[in-house]
């Protein structure tokens, strides 16, 4: 069994739910803020990031629901109306994707013993790692 109570697991899931929703909003913002000739290539990637993080948020929301709760969300987000270059947009995306990965990695340590939750978190970690690897490839010189 996990070392966490259901309430503590829910608290962790609510935090990750906020990470994913916030990342989705940031992707959407970046997709519309990016300028320059590379926009044609970059915008679809950022839109894809938006769709994918929203999907992750939905998966987390479903998990929260399975544990008998309703997803809770508290965000404090302010996004500037400034345009951004392709590289800077991917660098920002990498920053918040890495933060999300760390959140899942921390959760994995906490749910050790709960096979179903462990498997779920592991699968999320795999997906996050793929996103990060792709972003790093895009940022490679």
């Amino acid at each position: 069994m996990s070392q966490l109570s259901v309430d503590e697991i829910l608290q962790e899931l609510h935090r990750i739910f906020a990470e994913e929703i916030e990342a989705a909003i940031r992707y959407l913002h970046l997709a519309n803020a990016v300028r320059g000739v590379e926009r044609l290539v970059v915008e679809p990637k950022l839109q894809e990031g938006f769709r994918s993080t929203i999907e992750h948020a939905q998966i987390i929301a479903r998990k929260i629901r399975e544990l008998g709760a309703v997803p809770k969300l508290e965000l404090s987000l302010s996004l500037p109306p400034d345009s951004i270059g392709a590289r800077a947009a991917f660098e920002l995306a990498l920053t918040f994707e890495e933060a999300a990965l760390e959140a899942y990695q921390d959760l994995l340590k906490k749910v050790a013993g709960d096979v179903a939750l462990e498997e779920f978190v592991r699968s999320q970690i795999t997906i996050e790692c793929e996103h990060i690897a792709e972003l790093k490839q895009l940022l490679a010189e």
Partner: peptide
């Protein structure tokens, strides 16, 4: 993660 908890915001926000 500690800063995020202390300020009650996401890790993504803190990192940025």
């Amino acid at each position: 993660s500690d800063v995020a908890r202390q300020l009650n915001i996401t890790r993504g926000s803190v990192s940025i």
